[in-house]
Each structure stands twice: as C-alpha cells, then as structure tokens.
Design a protein around this nucleic acid. Structure first.
Lengths: 260, 260
DNA sequence: CTCATAAGTTCATATATGCGAAAAAGATTT
DNA sequence: AAATCTTTTTCGCATATATGAACTTATGAG
C-alpha cells in the first residue's frame, strides 16, 4: 500500500496548516526549522505561495502571512456534502453525548473522517478531518463495509491485500465477514482499542447517501466513558435519525444494492 | 522579475479552487481535461491530496470530493490581520459606495490584495483575494509607497528595476516621485485605467498597521462610476475612519518613519 | 563604526516528479 | 458474451525540483 505523497504538495499544505496552528506571521527561518526543510527549498516554496496569492511577504519584518484567499476554500463543502440536517445531527449528538462526533466515508481503500466536531471535554478523542484509517481494520470501516454486498466486500479485501506490502498485515476475509455479519445484526458498531489504545467508537450508518457516498456517524472517546453510556449513545443516535431525517429509518442498512 | 512558480504547488491550489468553482465531486478525467494536466500526473496528485486528508475518493462513482479539512484553513486570518474594526470599515464602505472594496498591502515588490468584498452590482470590479499587482504601477501600490520615505522608495525602485527582465518596462524614479508627492499632498489616490482599462480605484491608507504591515483600502469600479461619485467616496472613507478608528486620523499618512 | 552572527539567496548537482506511450481495468454497446 | 470505448494505471525516460555549500545581505552587539 503506497504511502508516498508528492513532497511539494505535502509541504504546501503543511505550511498553510502551520500558519493556522500559530496564528501569526512567520519567517522563512521559522518554517524551515519547524519542518526541517532546507532554507533554499523553503524560500522557493514561500515565494511560490506568494505568487499564487496565498501568502503575503513583508520585506520589513521579513515575515509571511496568509491572505484571505485561503479562507474562502471549501465553504461549500459543508452544505453540499452534509446538508443542514446531517450537520444538525452531528451537533445534536455532540451536545447529547458530550463526545467527539465524526462522519466517515469510504475513500479508496480507506475509511476517511471527512468531518469532525470535537467533544467539549478536556479529555477527548482528537481526530483531524481528512484523517484516513484502514477500511478493514477500523470501527467505522467495518460499519461502512457492512453496507456493501458480500461480493463487494470480498473484492475489496482482495484489493486491500494486493496493495499490502509483504511485511504488512493481511486481512482475513472470514474474520472480517464475521464482524460484518454481527454489525448487520446489531445495526451499529462498537469498536474498542482497534486503532488507538484506550479509545473507541460507537457508530451507525447514516440513512442517506450524499454524492453517491455511504456515510457513517461515529461517537468517539475513551473506552471507559463509551462503555458506561453505550445504551444512551445508541438511543441518542436513533432519536437523532428520527428527528433529523424525514423518512422511516427503522432499517438503517442501506441495503445490499449499494450501487445506486 | 521571476514569475516562475513550482508546478505542483500551483496544481494543488488550482485543483482545490476548482472544486470551489464547481461545487460537486469531480473525476480524474474532468480535472485532467480542465487544466490540461497529463492523466498520470493528475492521478498521482489526487492520490496525494487524498493521503493528506484533503480529498476523499469514491471508488464506485470514481470521483473525488474535498473533506472538511480544507474548510478550516485560514479562519483566524480575518480577525488577526484586520480586527473587527477594519472588517467593519470595509463592509461599511461597500454598503455606502456600492462598489468593490479591497485591502492591499505591500508584498515583497508587489501590491497584493489581501482581502476583498465585492460590490453587489452586477457590473463590478472583480478582484480575487491574493491577487498581486506591480507595486510601482498600480494605484494602491503608489499609495503604499507614499507612506515610505523617499530613500526607501528609491531603494525599492532600484530593486524592482533590477528584477525586471530586459524587455520589461523599467520604472522611472522621477515620474514615480511626482505621483507620490501628489498623493502625499492629497491624502488619497485616484487611479484610472492603470491596471485594467476602464477600471479604477480610489484609495486611502488605513491609519493603523497590522503585523507591521502598511494597509491601504481601495474602492474599485468602472472609471465612469468612480468619477461621478469621487467626492462622496472620499467623504465615506473619511467618515469611516472617524467611525471605526478611535484615534485622531486627520493626517492619515503613517509618517516618513515607516520602520516601527 | 566594526565585527560577528543570523537570515536569506544563488548555483551546480542529485533526486524527485512529470510525461507520454502502452497496458490494464471498467463501462457501455451490440 | 464479446467487442469497443473510456478511464485510470504503470513504467521508462526527460525534466523540474530539492539540496547543500558558498555567498550576500541584514541585524545586533561591543
């Protein structure tokens, strides 16, 4: 499974995110040091971002600062991908459970968190939107797979194993199908310690696709807290669906006919 | 003056901006065609953006879609760079003049629009935030230069001319100093047809620096409309300063002592 | 004012990336 | 089911980019 990314693409986004982290102008030196980029590479990259309109450069303080161009990006995604009702659902579940709530979808052969609202608790599961997890080895990944046909799952597992390097862990189809059958029966997933020791997720499929994508909602937090209030969380999710989705959603599985 | 940018950096931002323009999932082919990128280069780039968390990929619709990671970037810039009072000033001037209003600053050897609020008119001057203009050949550029000492202006012009390719237009210091003296006398700039035929800008220096940066506010639009209501625009700018800035701003020049 | 230090730029070379052509995979039509 | 078309991936090679060392410029300390 290739994890290689284009170095410059990664750097562009690292730099822009770093400005978000510090929230002040930065010098070439500060960025170069922070990411261990060579100064000459950093200089060319920052000049490029200035030319493209994303940064401005003050010769007198010798610092770079983002322009407002960056701020406008992606404003449409929230409504287009989630609609006001899914956003309302997420906010409702955060308020009602007190935990971090995320929306996940299948992204290539991964499960990807495409939206996250963090818990107000100081002790919280911290998930950055965009984060990817193995599709066949994460709670929401299993949940999403449970919406696919057995044949599709088999095909995906074959693909995943084909792209796994020899030293990587292969996915056992039999074990995975067992997990998926259980999820289909329960109508939800609860996974503990699967990705992060001590952390878990309780999730359900969202009874609506967006842009052809299966979406899953997950409540994440320390396993101890999740275990204590598991039944409450499930009830909150169910009542959230009733409240924010118009149609009957007694059977939240989107069916074996996943190619819509 | 080197206009070269790193190809991949440019592509990263072109792709992300294109999603904003179309507001729907896109296939590799659509992106490749839109920008005339080779398919193999497009494939690697999109996979990289997925790995970095900015896009998700749906294998079934074979389309990419941004995640919410992009949406959070730059949210702090508005308040940090402008404060609520400069934002309020801009909105007030847009409402009162009916024209596009922008904030410009010196960025390296350019004047850069770092924030823009478009006019509600259908016929409006359209300026994308981040856009750069020659410092010595634009209205807001001259305005910003008017806040520098004569010595600093001379040094900048020398630098600009050194970086101008042989076939490019050199800046005549004498002519420029004449323009700048006039602006210093008037307390504002009105430029017509300088960058875009038929378009102009009326601007004043903002009586406050942010992060060490000189800021200029400009009202842009068709020359005809600007000429008609020039005095009104100047009055609106002045009353805006009085309203949104606490200190006395009778002399909006920030002084010859520009190194604060 | 001089010297030392720090930051940023330049340039030749090494390496990563981009490209085009071919191949593979998927979808549509017959 | 087979053929055809479209989209995406693969791979060897050409080109762009990244790097390190040296140089230049700017700043701060004495």
């Amino acid at each position: 499974m290739s994890g290689e990314t284009i170095k410059t693409a990664r750097r562009v986004l690292e730099v822009l995110e770093h400005f978000d982290a510090v929230e002040r102008p930065l010098s070439l030196k500060e960025i170069s040091t922070r990411f261990d980029y060579p100064p000459s590479s950093t200089s060319v990259l920052l000049k490029t971002l200035m030319q493209l309109g994303y940064l401005d450069y003050d010769r007198y303080t010798r610092t770079y600062m983002p322009t407002m161009r960056i701020h406008g990006l992606g404003a449409w995604v929230k409504n287009s991908m989630f609609g006001t009702h899914i956003i309302a659902l997420v906010d409702y579940v955060v308020e009602s459970t007190g935990e971090t709530v995320s929306i996940g979808t299948q992204s290539d052969l991964y499960m990807q968190y495409i939206h996250t609202v963090p818990s107000p608790h100081a002790i919280r599961l911290s998930i950055k939107p965009g984060t990817i997890r193995p599709l066949a080895r994460s709670g929401l990944g299993w949940l999403i797979l449970s919406s696919r046909s057995d044949e599709e799952v088999e095909q995906l597992v074959r693909r995943i194993n084909a792209e796994t390097p020899p030293e990587g862990r292969k996915t056992d189809l039999g074990e995975l199908m067992e997990i998926i059958r259980q999820i289909r029966t329960d109508g939800y997933v609860m996974s503990q310690h699967t990705v992060t020791e001590g952390a878990g997720v309780i999730g359900m499929l969202i009874p609506e696709r967006r842009h052809g994508r299966v979406l899953a909602i997950g409540v994440g937090g320390p396993v101890v807290r999740l275990t204590e209030k598991k039944e409450a969380i499930l009830q909150i999710l169910r009542s959230g669906f009733e409240r924010f989705f118009e149609r009957d959603c007694g059977d939240v599985h989107l069916g074996l006919n996943s190619r819509l």
